[in-house]
Design a protein around this nucleic acid. Sequence first.
DNA 1: CGCGGCTTTGATGTTCATCAAGTAAAGTGG
DNA 2: CCACTTTACTTGATGAACATCAAAGCCGCG
Lengths: 236, 236
Amino acid sequence: MTDKEPGVKESMVCDCYKCELKDLFYRNITDIALDSICERKFETIFRKGESIISEGDEILHFSYLKSGLAKIFRLSQNKEQIIAITRPMDFIGILGILTSKTYNYSVMALEDSVTCNMDIELVRNICQTNNNFTFSLFEKVSHIYDKIVIEGIKIRQKHLRGRVSYILLMFANEIYFSNKFELPLTRKEIAEFIGMTTENVIRVFSEFRKDGLIRISGKTIEILDKNRMDNISNFG
Amino acid sequence: MTDKEPGVKESMVCDCYKCELKDLFYRNITDIALDSICERKFETIFRKGESIISEGDEILHFSYLKSGLAKIFRLSQNKEQIIAITRPMDFIGILGILTSKTYNYSVMALEDSVTCNMDIELVRNICQTNNNFTFSLFEKVSHIYDKIVIEGIKIRQKHLRGRVSYILLMFANEIYFSNKFELPLTRKEIAEFIGMTTENVIRVFSEFRKDGLIRISGKTIEILDKNRMDNISNFG
DNA sequence: CGCGGCTTTGATGTTCATCAAGTAAAGTGG
DNA sequence: CCACTTTACTTGATGAACATCAAAGCCGCG
């Protein structure tokens, strides 16, 4: 997060002692260490569409998403490839936050978002002296990676209809906790996530609509027949 | 590694103080801790084709591949999906070695192989008390994961010819360090690695042979025109 | 209001999986 | 060690799944 980034610093920050990440931090860190992080942390606001991280940027902060939604992606062969959707309380930049000098991925806000940023050197110092902390972090990062790898395998084994229903169910079940939601991704981005073309994403949407599986109104999607969607996701 | 596994314990084990993993262990661990691991470690021999780990097995040891070659794979929808090829000095089981109770992946020997196995509880104890060690391990595991994710993305963006040349170059450049080598995978396994059918792997092999790119004799492959192979791998 | 990006649909062609059928190689039991 | 079985390899023919191309409507934004 360098100066030229569009993110805006926010003055209303929350109390670290009440942070939802306390499982990771509060439990494993002394009050003194926590205080030293807290007084230097800051929050940043990103509007929908703004870049949070660009591949190659120097890593200066240990950041997590406080609210909103973001996509993690890589540029490969002039094509964006979306690797994962980052939800609140997820770390930003995942890999190499501690071990690399620069980011390996780009991150962009899909909705208005707020990140909380801590000095990376301070966090590295805590790692040097507090292995409970390091271990917890290790555990969390491992699970994130594992999910990415396994999800990638599962998605690619499916046909187009299966991929689309998989991602729609993901939004409904894991992100918005509702059968009706606003798609945070364009059709093109969905295509970049699940490895198909924009046109075919739209075509499958239309098929699902004609089959009475979903209702579409612009970016608003409502899943009407979850059972059949589950079947298509699992066996399509 | 339970009793029913085919691996055979080996009595001739090497000196931990001269272990190639000393960067990870020796540098970060006291002699006493190292000694306590060493006297309880053991090595296991696996013949080509034998199972080293099965998905769901309880994790009892922290193991690495001392010699040989192995494939890491998952069973998904009755299909094997090869995730990575493990080379000497790579860890076995990667994810969750420290944090999970059971393995998330299966591992099978592709060549006669030897693993070195340490008591997982002992290693976990070291993690509890030695954060240099934990940090080094964290770093190594992160890089392994990163490579898997990026490699997966790259392979799937290519057409069939590009995928096949990519994997052949991988064997030549990163595993056997020679343009002529014995393929450790069957055609079917190659297909499972790069997401295509067995028939098409064979078809592309035949095309490459007719185009004078490679010479094939059973499992022996020789890359004749590396420049053109590089091009196909990068732009195919 | 007009421009560019997003969305939609149809027509067309290519890539690739599937099916079939046969050969070679490798393991198995008498 | 040889007949037998199984697994791996190979090639061709066919069709399905999917990408690409083309054209037009829509929507937000300067």
